[in-house]
Computed example of a mutant assay.
Amino acid sequence: MLELRPNCECCDRDLPFDSPEARICTFECTFCADCAEATLKGVCPNCGGGFVPRPIRPARLMAKYPASTKRVLKPEGCAVA
């Protein structure tokens, strides 16, 4: 089950569980669409993989399967590795 992380690792923008702007890589690193496309040029700075839109968990399942509340932020900034 996806963690549904709450923010962009690059700019710290909020990405609620139902945000169509969230992008993830195969390791579930999470970025907003703007950072994933413009800043990172479609390449995850952590693993070098690509991004896909994060699936949206139905609201009716959020009580049983809540999204993560742990924020992840790259203190050194975002740049392709």
Rank of each mutant, 00 (worst) to 15 (best):
P20R: 11
C11N: 10
C10K: 12
G42C: 02
N7S: 13
R71Q: 12
C44A: 10
P55I: 00
K41M: 10
L2H: 12
A79R: 15
R71E: 08
C44F: 09
C25Q: 02
V80Y: 00
E9G: 13
A63R: 15
L61V: 01
C78A: 10
K74H: 11
C78P: 07
F27I: 11
L73D: 01
T26P: 03
A79I: 00
C25H: 00
P53L: 01
G42S: 02
G48E: 07
E21F: 12
A33T: 07
V80I: 05
R23E: 08
V72C: 01
E9S: 14
A36Q: 04
E76C: 00
L4T: 01
T69N: 15
N46A: 11
L4G: 04
P58S: 07
R60N: 12
V43N: 02
T26F: 05
G42N: 04
S68M: 01
K74Q: 11
P45L: 03
C10H: 14
C47N: 04
I56P: 06
C32Y: 06
T26I: 10
T26W: 06
R71S: 02
F17H: 00
G77Q: 13
G50T: 11
S68G: 01
P53A: 10
R13P: 00
R5D: 15
C35W: 01
C47V: 01
I24V: 15
D18Q: 07
R71P: 01
P45I: 02
L40M: 00
T39Y: 01
D34S: 12
R57I: 08
E37T: 06
C78L: 03
A36Y: 03
E21W: 10
T39F: 06
L15I: 02
V80S: 13
K64I: 06
G42F: 06
L73A: 13
F51P: 08
R54C: 03
P16E: 08
C44W: 05
A59T: 02
L15R: 04
M1W: 07
P58Y: 00
G49T: 08
P55F: 00
N46L: 14
C25P: 01
P75Y: 05
A38K: 15
T30L: 04
S19W: 09
S19D: 08
R23V: 04
R57N: 09
S19Y: 09
C11Y: 07
G77F: 09
A63G: 04
K70T: 03
Y65Q: 08
K64T: 06
C44G: 11
A81N: 14
T26H: 14
D34Y: 13
D12N: 10
E37M: 12
E21L: 14
V52E: 14
R54V: 03
C29T: 02
C29A: 14
I24Y: 02
G42R: 03
L73W: 06
A33D: 13
C32W: 05
